[in-house]
């Protein structure tokens, strides 16, 4: 099978790769670029474990073709922290014990960041519906929602 040459931007860096026409962006990230922080829970866009930012919009990278990334901007979980400085969402997920097994965590963090980018002061209901595309089987979501609320408050500069 012939491959397609793709030039794109991932976490701010220029990246070039070859991929097959039927290869998902998730497979490219994981298998060709070694960015294995994005997880495959279903491969059908139902679980959100592969949530990735594409031109500022949250997508399931298992439903995007690798070839579609040409000329676009991708952000993955690997780009969320700056060096050793964790994003407030990452810190709050740790403080609130908002993860157990952690397989869904990268997807939740990406989705939650996308929410706070557009809505810095979401209600509990807004958080719950925004995150409804990300499945977690361990936590019952309680501590995830609280971590997002707390991170949002900190990012707004509200007194704790």
């Amino acid at each position: 099978m012939t491959t397609i040459a793709v030039s794109t931007t991932i976490n701010g860096d220029d990246v070039e790769y070859l991929c097959h026409a039927d290869e998902s962006l998730l497979d490219v990230l994981r298998n060709r670029l070694g960015l294995m922080g994005s997880k495959e829970g279903c491969g059908t866009g139902d679980c959100g474990a592969c949530s990735t930012m594409l031109d500022g919009r949250i997508v399931c990278s298992c439903l995007v073709l690798g070839a579609e990334a040409e000329g676009r901007e991708i952000e993955t979980i690997e780009g969320m922290a700056h060096g050793h400085d964790l994003h407030p969402l990452q810190t709050k997920f740790l403080e609130h014990a908002a993860l157990q097994c952690g397989i869904c965590t990268p997807g939740f963090l990406m989705a939650a960041k996308a929410l706070l980018d557009v809505n810095p002061d979401p209600t509990e209901e807004e958080i719950r519906f925004w995150l409804a595309g990300n499945l977690c089987r361990c936590t019952g979501y309680d501590k995830i929602v609280r971590a997002v609320q707390d991170a949002a408050a900190e990012m707004r500069g509200d007194a704790a």
Binding site: M80, L86, G102
Partner: peptide, 21 residues
């Protein structure tokens, strides 16, 4: 007490390695 778990940072940065990783 409620300290941060030792495997926590790896799991929020995508570095933790699961079965397929």
């Amino acid at each position: 007490t409620r300290p941060v778990r030792p495997d926590g940072v790896d799991k929020v940065t995508g570095r933790a390695r699961y079965g397929a990783d």
